[in-house]
Simulated assay, not measured.
Amino acid sequence: MTLLDEARSRRIPLQLYWPEQTKSKLKLAILSHGYKVSHTAYTFIATNLAERGYYVVSILHELPGDEPIPTTGKPYEVRMPNWQRGAATILYTLQSLQKQKPDLDFKHVLLVGHSNGGDMSMLFAQQYPELVSQVISLDNRRMPLPRSYKPRILSIRSSDQPADPGVLPTREEQKRYKIKIITLTNTIHNDMCDEGTQAQKEEINALINSFIQ
Rank of each mutant, 00 (worst) to 15 (best):
Q174M: 03
L16V: 15
F44R: 04
L145E: 05
Q95T: 10
V78F: 06
E172Y: 11
Y128C: 13
S24R: 13
S155G: 13
M122K: 08
G53C: 14
P129Q: 01
Y92M: 04
R147C: 02
F106H: 04
G65I: 03
R152P: 07
D164H: 08
T72Q: 14
E202H: 12
I188Y: 10
P75Q: 00
K25I: 03
I45M: 02
H108D: 14
P165C: 12
P70D: 01
Y35W: 13
V56E: 00
N186D: 10
Y42W: 05
Q174P: 06
R176T: 13
Q134R: 12
R10F: 02
Q213G: 14
I179Q: 02
V135K: 01
F44M: 06
R10M: 14
N205C: 15
I136C: 10
G113Q: 03
Q200C: 10
I204H: 06
S58V: 09
Y128E: 11
M122G: 07
I204W: 09
Q84T: 07
D105H: 10
Q84N: 08
L3P: 15
Q134A: 11
R79P: 09
E51M: 10
D119G: 06
Q198I: 06
L145H: 06
R157F: 02
N209L: 12
L63C: 06
L207T: 09
L123R: 14
E130L: 07
N82T: 14
P13S: 06
R141C: 12
S24V: 09
E67P: 07
I182L: 06
I188R: 13
I212H: 03
A88S: 15
P68K: 03
I204T: 09
N190I: 11
A46D: 00
T197C: 08
A163L: 05
H33C: 01
G113L: 01
Y55R: 04
V109K: 08
K27R: 15
L168S: 07
M80S: 07
P81D: 00
N205H: 09
L123M: 01
I181N: 05
E172C: 06
P13M: 01
L16S: 11
N82E: 12
D103C: 03
N205V: 15
P64Y: 01
Q100S: 14
E202Y: 04
M120V: 15
E20I: 13
L168V: 10
T197N: 06
A41M: 12
S210D: 15
E67L: 14
L60P: 05
K25P: 11
K107G: 11
E67N: 14
K201P: 04
H33G: 02
L14Q: 03
K23W: 04
I212C: 03
D194K: 11
H189C: 08
E67S: 14
D194E: 01
K101W: 02
N116A: 12
H61Q: 13
D164P: 03
D160W: 00
H108T: 13
Y55K: 05
R10T: 13
